[in-house]
């Protein structure tokens, strides 16, 4: 690592707050917040791109991103600046906003999650989650 990179510090700001956090280029955004104890706007979860609770939208600036769960940030959402704070590294000063999944959106995805749960594993047949019965939506028996 050269001396220039060690000295570089970007600033991360959150609109509507006085939050102004320093973040090195090799430091993820969530870590910068966690070290300053400024977690009210961005929750600390697994810190590794799996749980999704630190979802944010980058409003200004550019970032480098590691792999993150596609269930939390879709490809389209990535283009719109959404990301998990624990998986992005600043390449400039940033303006970011917390963007947790809308709980309603989570519920809307529930049926889809059930439907796809049994297709995740290679080599197994389709299974139905639901108890047999007329009240079961989408049941084909």
């Amino acid at each position: 690592m050269d001396q220039t990179e060690i000295r570089t510090v970007h600033r991360i700001r959150v609109p509507g707050t006085d939050i102004d956090v320093p973040c090195r280029p090799q430091q993820n955004v969530l870590d910068a917040f966690e070290r300053r104890g400024l977690c009210r706007d961005i929750r600390i979860g697994c810190r590794n791109g799996g749980c999704g609770v630190c979802r944010v939208q980058v409003l200004e600036g550019t970032v480098r991103a590691d792999r993150m769960g596609a269930n939390h940030v879709t490809a389209d959402e990535r283009l719109a600046g959404y990301a998990l704070a624990c998986r992005i590294y600043p390449e400039s000063d940033l303006l970011i906003a917390a963007a947790p999944r809308n709980p309603c959106a989570t519920r809307a995805r529930t049926d889809e999650t059930i439907a796809t749960a049994d297709r995740r594993l290679v080599g197994t047949q389709t299974a139905c989650l639901h108890r047999h019965g007329p009240a079961c939506p989408g049941h084909d028996e």
Partner: peptide
Amino acid sequence: YGYTVYHVEAGE
């Protein structure tokens, strides 16, 4: 009990 059973072949 009312649940569907699926099968996974040996060697999967």
